[in-house]
């Protein structure tokens, strides 16, 4: 039960929790937060592959992949949030389809 296993299982469960959040929440900002959790999970999985406690140290290729991934995710999040704000400004409701019964705007 070394740390590779703990962090990998945490990573896959984070991915699943993010997927659940993305599917479950009608509110746009909550969807984007869930997407970031999914991204965090995937990066944790990549780095848990790269980690070797003692011998040759940490594998630089997954680290480079995760660095690139972090910057890609923050730019995608910023773009999605700007879209969400614009939709809220125009339609007043921060959701993709305006179901009447929910008051949560």
């Amino acid at each position: 039960m070394n740390s590779l296993l703990i962090y990998s299982i945490t990573a896959t469960s984070l991915f699943t929790i993010g997927l659940m959040g993305l599917a479950a929440h009608p509110n746009l900002i909550r969807k984007i937060i869930s997407l970031n959790i999914m991204a965090g999970g995937v990066f944790l999985f990549l780095i848990s592959l790269a980690y070797h406690p003692d011998d040759p140290g940490v594998d630089p290729v997954p680290q480079a992949m995760v660095l690139t991934g972090i910057v890609v995710t923050i730019s995608a999040t910023a773009f999605a949030l700007c879209l969400a704000r614009r939709i809220t400004e125009i339609t007043g409701s921060s959701r993709l389809e305006d179901k009447p019964e929910d008051t949560d705007s």
Partner: peptide
């Protein structure tokens, strides 16, 4: 179109 674009992007 903004809603469609955001649904596509997500």
């Amino acid at each position: 179109s903004l809603r469609a674009a955001l649904r596509y992007f997500l």
